[in-house]
Design a protein around this nucleic acid. Structure first.
Lengths: 353, 353
DNA sequence: TTGAAAGCGCTAACAT
DNA sequence: ATGTTAGCGCTTTCAA
């Protein structure tokens, strides 16, 4: 399928310096002394500049610059009990859905002085509890979760702690704190309706055996039922998904159910694989089989035929998550808090269905 | 090109709890008291378990579990001057090259107790200095940079600090500390040679006006020169790249240079766009125009025709970076330090060239 | 093998 | 508007 023309890895060796436990040479007290003020004044210049006399402020800031002082946020966090760190857990960054969400999150958080700390669960819901604890140990100011966590221990602990927590990429009526996402079942239903409107009622599904993907399947089946159609023939895989897995699953599905008229792939990579399989079989898409993907990756537009897919605003989920957090950090009155933010989805009609 | 079928965003409102500056309820001294030992002993149980009598260790660990104690790493970092945080700067996570590298980095770092902190430069070399300072303020144990930083201030400061620093996605003979990547100019040369071996000597280039992309162009031109060919007709864009930009750039390039026989796109998205443009014009690929991409994204395989591209091990760069760091943290003798790690690249021949 | 004392560098009250 | 006094919760000597 693909020939390799190698430029093998070469490797060079050399020596180097190293160190550990190094500290910045200049501390706040050095600045204070040099500027002829107390340490608090330096602290205030940094954190509450408006409380200082303009002249003092200028003098301190100038000294800071002159000495190249970089405040130790580790000490600051300890003293203030605020770390200005947001911890986020994603299944993996290799899936560009989540990478995009993180990009949106970091892009909004960064300019406000917050840092993003990342951990990957590799789609293991069990791992989440440990990762959450690790973040709590870091005294993060908030936690961002992918999906609506089902672990009761985690939900209880986080709720009790009162820490800002955003669940993402799905919706629920009773979030731990706040949820930013869209309805996965709703997306499945919309796809069923789309197939129905084109008189395609024998439907297949290819997706990962994973929470949100299964919700999309459930929605699809609900929608099919509403059309009076049979439930979808489902091919469930272990994440992570890939084009190769999609092709394989499509092959297996079509062998078992050759009369299927449409297939909903819970993920554009799988859908691209399904298109490949159709091409291999010489099946016309969408004539013989309609294919719908999910998420509208760049690849959807580049594949052949261009993929009809459910577009989801991955980056927007990140942005809105960040904004919700900033509002929270800013001390927005808790009563008027929006706890459920639906960023929606839309079906992008191209040529595959 | 794409119809939208909307399921517009709905929004729900509700109330919530909130808090700030919350602290974990149980501290090390609580554990110490409950276990009938001194605080240090608890600390040792966590950090140097082998120095404790097995009975003491068991007793302490049990108490920790019973009380649900989660150590405050913020305090630990302050006291020990080691944060177990690695700070990484990428242009953007939206580019899956860098997302993949971060996934590899986090995947190796996590199990060793290190956390990944992320910041995005948005391709602004100028922003890097600020982001580095922000990381230094967090007292990160190491910094991972994308590309070989040219900012002399940054290089000097980091080198002087002696902090482990890994530059990635490129090579250089004189890294700040260590570099993990591949030769971008080498990749460009390899592409030139590839075109040359197929007797294509009128070549175009589409890429971002960005350091590493320009190196690939330089390599391409060097390779073309070696073949006795003219330099590539280059279409330079502002990052980030996209399929749409690629199509547009291809259109512009082909209008100016309709007799071009091959085009090297410095990025698979741009290449996918070029393929789209060829399809639009009804040009045969590779018959009339050969297209080569860069990085071997999933989309390369899914596009039509499947894209010949230069494969780069994005994830492997992250993994090797992490491993180099762990070796460093583990106190590997500095003299035997590999400072230049070349992960190589390979041309994946599919059908577009 | 365990403990006591002394900070790490900063911010938060509470003055003044 | 600025300073003084106490820690934040942990790790690190050093001693026993």
């Amino acid at each position: 399928m693909a020939k390799r023309i190698g430029a093998p890895a070469a490797t060079s060796v050399s020596s180097s310096s190293s160190a550990s436990g190094l500290r910045q040479p200049v501390r706040m007290s050095d600045v204070a002394q040099a500027a002829g003020v107390a340490r608090v004044t330096v602290s205030r210049a940094l954190n509450y500049p408006e409380t200082l006399a303009p002249a003092t402020l200028a003098k301190v800031l100038d000294t800071i610059r002159r000495l190249g002082y970089v405040p130790d946020l580790t000490a600051g966090s300890l003293a203030s009990a605020r770390s200005r760190i947001v911890g986020a857990i994603v299944p993996t960054l290799s899936n560009s859905w989540y990478a995009d969400t993180m990009e949106g999150l970091a892009a909004v958080l960064g300019p406000s002085g917050y840092h993003l700390m990342l951990a990957q669960s590799n789609y293991h819901p069990r791992a989440e509890a440990g990762l959450v604890d690790a973040f709590l140990g870091r005294r993060v100011d908030a936690i961002v979760l992918t999906g609506v966590t089902r672990d009761r221990g985690v939900r209880g602990k986080l709720r009790k702690l009162g820490l800002p927590v955003i669940e993402t990429w799905d919706l629920t009526d009773s979030p731990i704190d706040t949820v930013v996402g869209f309805s996965n079942t709703g997306a499945g239903q919309a796809v069923a309706a789309y197939f129905g409107s084109r008189a395609r009622l024998r439907i297949g599904f290819i997706g990962a055996r994973e929470e949100r993907s299964l919700k999309r399947l459930a929605g699809l089946n609900r929608g099919l039922a509403a059309l009076g159609a049979q439930p979808a023939h489902a091919e469930l895989l272990h994440p992570p998904s890939s084009i190769a897995l999609g092709a394989q699953a499509a092959n297996s599905l079509l062998r078992k159910q050759p009369d299927i008229q449409g297939v909903f792939c819970s993920n554009d990579s799988l859908a691209a694989g399904a298109l490949l399989e159709c091409r291999r079989r010489g099946w016309d898409v969408p004539g013989r089989l309609a294919v719908i993907g999910f998420s509208d990756l760049a690849m959807a537009e580049a594949s052949y035929p261009p993929l009809t897919t459910v577009r989801v605003q991955a980056r927007e989920i990140g942005r809105q998550t960040a904004q919700a957090l900033l509002r929270r950090f800013g001390g927005e009155p808790r009563a008027r808090h929006q706890r459920i933010l639906d960023v929606g989805f839309e079906i992008i009609e191209r040529e595959s269905a």
